[in-house]
Amino acid sequence: MLEILLNWLAEPKNWIPSPITTVIALLALAVANSNYRRKSGIDIAGSYRWEVDFRTDQPYIKELRLENRKDKAITIYFIFLKIGNNIYLELQNHEDNPLILKAFESYRSELDLIAGYTSKAIFVNISRALLDDSISKEIVLATGSGKFHIKKKIKHWHAREAFFQKPEVSLITPFVVAHRGTIVGNRTKYIVEIRDTHTDQVTSLLTFPNTLSELPEDVGLTILPYDLESIENLELFLLNSQKKGIFSNSSNFNIILNPHYNDPSHGIKGSHIAAKNLINFWHACFLGKIKRLFGTSNTLIVSKSKSPHQLVSKVRSLSIWLNNK
């Protein structure tokens, strides 16, 4: 094999690479460089969200997100938020049980409510530094490879940004009601808890109005509109069903009126919102901007409270609360 290679190199014409060989070599070099860049070093993006709560007097970091953008696992022992150049706020301690961020893995964690901040066993106030956007902040990780500053932010977009930028945008969220794990719609009038009289434990749940197929052992069972007119009528209906053997003798019925019930005769609950096409939407935005520019400006009512959770928006909480501190 070596003799063949030496004979091939002995020919000067073989020293000039062919175009195909050059292309293959460049592709192999590009693939090798891509694999090296994907696996070498640390590339983590991160973001956080602070929140205020009436149960505590200082803002705190509520949510933390990390994204590993490398094809290698990262071991994390501590997570800090560096505020300015002299404050390291400890967000999470994983020293006893290190956090392993796997390749291309996303990590999200909700942090607990705080009762304050301490430094050298003394309570400190970092509210101004935490809320002031003019003070630099970055997430710092203590990893198995040493200290790592997260420079890249996770671009976590939410429709609330468009909602706050343009009053013409409607941000709509589903309103879900559940009772003991059972989803209840607004056409459900009654929720019936069936309890065992011996153990006082809820054995099952029924909702009314309902289809007969969802009732237990419903052979020959008929529900009339009269039975659903009141709690008393429904209770009488259930007791009569119990006498027929539909429910066990040890069953006790607790009937709850759904507070979100909407009578079908009243139509669909809520005000109507029409979806606009692009032209109508921009026309509404233009008219709204004109009204805001030339309309009567509302007087800003400044709160006398020094707690940010009593103010409406983060911008107001930052500008008003900091001035009062």
Rank of each mutant, 00 (worst) to 15 (best):
N280Q: 15
A275M: 10
H266C: 13
C285G: 06
H283K: 02
I273R: 12
S265V: 08
S248N: 14
G267K: 15
H266Q: 14
P264Q: 11
Y261E: 02
P259T: 09
N252P: 00
S251P: 00
A274K: 12
S248K: 13
N262C: 07
G270Y: 07
S265R: 15
W282M: 09
L257W: 02
K276V: 03
P264N: 10
S251G: 02
H283T: 05
S248T: 11
N254K: 00
H283Y: 05
N249G: 06
K269I: 09
P259N: 06
F253N: 01
D263V: 08
I255N: 05
I273S: 07
F286M: 07
K276Y: 14
P259D: 02
S248R: 11
I255K: 00
K276M: 14
S251M: 05
S250K: 02
G267E: 00
H272K: 15
L257E: 01
G270K: 07
N252W: 03
D263C: 10
K269R: 15
G267C: 05
N277Q: 06
I256P: 00
W282D: 14
G270C: 04
I255T: 07
N258P: 02
L278D: 11
F286Y: 14
A274C: 11
F281Q: 14
I279T: 15
N277A: 08
I279Y: 15
A284P: 14
H266K: 15
G270N: 11
F253C: 01
H260D: 09
P264C: 13
F253V: 01
Y261H: 15
H266T: 05
N262T: 08
S265F: 12
D263F: 01
L278W: 06
I255S: 01
L278Y: 13
K276I: 10
S248D: 08
H283M: 07
